[in-house]
Computed example of a mutant assay.
Amino acid sequence: MSSDPLFGWDLTFKTVEKDIKQKPDVIVAFIHWNLIKRGFRSIGIGDESTLTGDESRSELLPTGWNNNDNYTLRYLFEEKLFILHGLITNGNLIVNLMRSVDLAVSNTAVTIEETVNQTSGSIDKLLPNYKEFMHNIKRDLIDTIIDKPTSSAQTQTAASTSTTSRNSNDDPLRVMPTPMPGVVPDNHNLWDLPPNLRNVGRSDLDPFAPPGGGMIFNPFTPRRDIENPGLGIPGGLPRGAVPPGARFDPFGPPGVGPLPGRRPPPPDADHFPPPGDDMFM
């Protein structure tokens, strides 16, 4: 008997057949039967979202279930309250199933005239496409909300997962260690020693080590401008260092001539007396 997908439908419909007033009633009765098959139990009508604990559970539709323009039915499943809402609009029946503990909602929409052929008779005459309709009820209305955990369960599961499976490397507050000096950037292990530890700091011991190592400045490196070496170097000062007409003794030892192919240094002005001064007379 249990292998028959329609087992129990005839009995359910017989209990409400005298109450059927319109085609949407057939749809709601069929949805109710699908809920009962999945373990839901009816506890009355209305949209009260609290439980008193003494609700009477039943497999039958409650008295007055289709007395209003819209449908509001209350169910219990796994000790949780569910409220079924049915709204008729523009030839459609919009059905929502809400879990009151966290307001999770599943829904389905049914075109009334395409779904219900007549309001009495066998299932084939009532709902010609009942197999597809059963599939949609199971997929969209029931399984969607049953398989969805409550918000409290989601929070506890997420907290447990993050506590047990978090890796210290995934911690966003973890401070990454500073790589050791001299480590090759391409080396994935930043804590490995340099490949040749003996060469670390060697350039600081050789003032003329290429490319210009050490702490002593070499003015005669290939990159140095010998023609204009700068302050304190034989050959003169940079252009503009001595104002025009000023008396100035060039730096460097006397008698040092210009380098081959270079212009001569400026003349020594000591052989001219200073203007208005006869101390050299």
Score class of each variant (00 low, 15 high):
257 G>W: 13
149 P>T: 09
7 F>Q: 08
103 L>Y: 11
248 F>E: 10
113 E>I: 04
220 F>D: 04
215 M>V: 15
251 F>E: 07
69 D>G: 07
254 P>W: 14
12 T>Q: 06
222 P>Q: 05
278 D>H: 13
228 N>H: 15
265 P>N: 05
65 W>Q: 03
93 L>N: 00
279 M>P: 03
207 P>T: 11
142 I>W: 09
220 F>N: 07
66 N>P: 02
140 D>N: 11
243 P>M: 06
60 L>Q: 14
17 E>R: 03
125 K>H: 05
71 Y>R: 01
215 M>C: 09
150 T>R: 07
13 F>T: 00
121 G>W: 05
119 T>G: 00
250 P>V: 11
266 P>D: 09
100 S>G: 03
240 G>N: 10
162 S>A: 09
65 W>D: 02
112 I>D: 00
80 K>M: 10
52 T>R: 09
158 A>I: 08
265 P>H: 09
265 P>D: 07
127 L>N: 04
261 G>T: 13
105 V>W: 03
202 R>Q: 14
50 T>C: 05
195 P>F: 08
48 E>P: 02
203 S>M: 07
121 G>N: 02
169 N>M: 04
26 V>C: 00
1 M>N: 08
130 Y>E: 01
54 D>Y: 14
163 T>P: 00
226 I>L: 04
281 M>P: 06
118 Q>V: 00
31 I>P: 02
127 L>H: 06
167 N>W: 15
123 I>N: 01
170 D>H: 14
147 D>V: 11
212 G>M: 08
201 G>N: 14
218 N>G: 06
43 I>Q: 07
246 A>C: 13
257 G>F: 10
103 L>V: 06
196 N>E: 09
107 N>Y: 11
235 G>N: 09
59 E>T: 13
152 S>E: 15
94 I>V: 12
175 V>K: 09
157 T>R: 06
81 L>D: 05
145 I>L: 04
18 K>G: 01
76 L>P: 06
206 D>C: 06
71 Y>K: 01
173 L>Y: 12
94 I>M: 02
208 F>I: 08
270 D>K: 09
79 E>D: 15
245 G>S: 15
132 E>Y: 14
12 T>M: 04
